[in-house]
Nucleic acid binder design. Sequence first.
DNA 1: ATTGTGAATGACTAACGGTCAGTTATTACG
DNA 2: CGTAATAACTGACCGTTAGTCATTCACAAT
Lengths: 224, 224
Amino acid sequence: MGIHERKEREKEQRREEILQAATKVFFEKGLQVATMDEIADAAELSKGTLYLYYKSKEDLYLGVMSIGIDILYDMFLKATERTASTLETLRSFSRAFVEFFRTHRDYYRMFHFFQNPQLHKQVSDEMKEYCRTNNQKLWDLATKILQRGVDEGLLRKDLAPIEMAFLVWSTSNSIMMQIDFQEMHWRNHIGLDLDHMLEKANELLLETLLTEDARAKLERPTVA
Amino acid sequence: MGIHERKEREKEQRREEILQAATKVFFEKGLQVATMDEIADAAELSKGTLYLYYKSKEDLYLGVMSIGIDILYDMFLKATERTASTLETLRSFSRAFVEFFRTHRDYYRMFHFFQNPQLHKQVSDEMKEYCRTNNQKLWDLATKILQRGVDEGLLRKDLAPIEMAFLVWSTSNSIMMQIDFQEMHWRNHIGLDLDHMLEKANELLLETLLTEDARAKLERPTVA
DNA sequence: ATTGTGAATGACTAACGGTCAGTTATTACG
DNA sequence: CGTAATAACTGACCGTTAGTCATTCACAAT
């Protein structure tokens, strides 16, 4: 009586195959230019079948994006798992985000669509909820580390951990967006090295978030 | 022989009428949902006529957005024209941006499309260039003020004015984006007051950009 | 062998951005 | 004034594509 289970597995596998095909096509063309027929071709299925597994093109897009969230989560987790000082963990976190941005640009790009509900025309409530939950894991993880920093007296107390998480994320994110969208414009027309700006901004922000004590120690690491 | 001139004026006026109709429809529905037929209806013209004045729906959208850039530029200009200390001018600048965001949300929203070339499918090179030039004015103005701050010893010298301008803009912008897209999510699910974050972030950043001298004076305004 | 079930198909529909041959309005000219 | 020339405008039409659904197909149950 394992037939039912096998069918379930096969269905799951089909869903996965569709996701793989969609990943390939979306990475190459983006949401707007990619067509469902193309994805169907890549999956060696008919278009109708795609709709048995995903409710809309946008749902499928977010399905692919969710893999990106998983990857980022894993990278964050690894950054926290290395036993090190909290300060070093904070830096690892920051670096992990930049690393994700550099090595998984395709996924990073997809986050914009998720972030901007103005662009959602056909996203199902289920998919929205799924993404929200998945995304929440990231924030919980980040907040936990920052809370540790506050408890240890490393980070200032007048900002809640979630506020710091938001600041760190939004600072990095806005610069990464510009790198992704307009790097050449900034470099050639304005003469601005955005990669440098990204590092600098993270550095400045971390300093800003540190308590005065921690900042003093940072400047003179081994107190005489 | 003023016929030619009159025709020119009428043509310009028609272009303006189309822009008005487009403004109304785009504000109500956004780029994706608004249709050219709707805009044609609103302008009491046929769809074909729209294409005599704008090359594509996206061009028309950017035409509307450019008005928003003009408005923001004027607000920035007013912020700098008030005779005041450079520090106060910097604050005015920051406030002007927030003010624009609050009172011209519809225009602000349109900036995203301009910023993200991934979304451009039919933008003409001419319109791109026009927007770029228009946009550049904003940066020039901001950079000028920041340069003054550096010259006066108010702002640190290890960051170029354009770098500071970029940091200020990207910090504000990323938070505003979140307010615009997800304010309710942040407030209800995370318990985060983004309006407060926006002020706080601007405040922290300004402090970060000040020289140590200036910061010290800021904390004890009247030195004994 | 036959029936039942659900997965898969692909022709079809609706919607929309953009086009262009044809119409109308206006000006120039004899 | 009549007519030709020019410019402005129109809307039916085209191509594309997301999404649908009646039908077909594969396979399991009996």
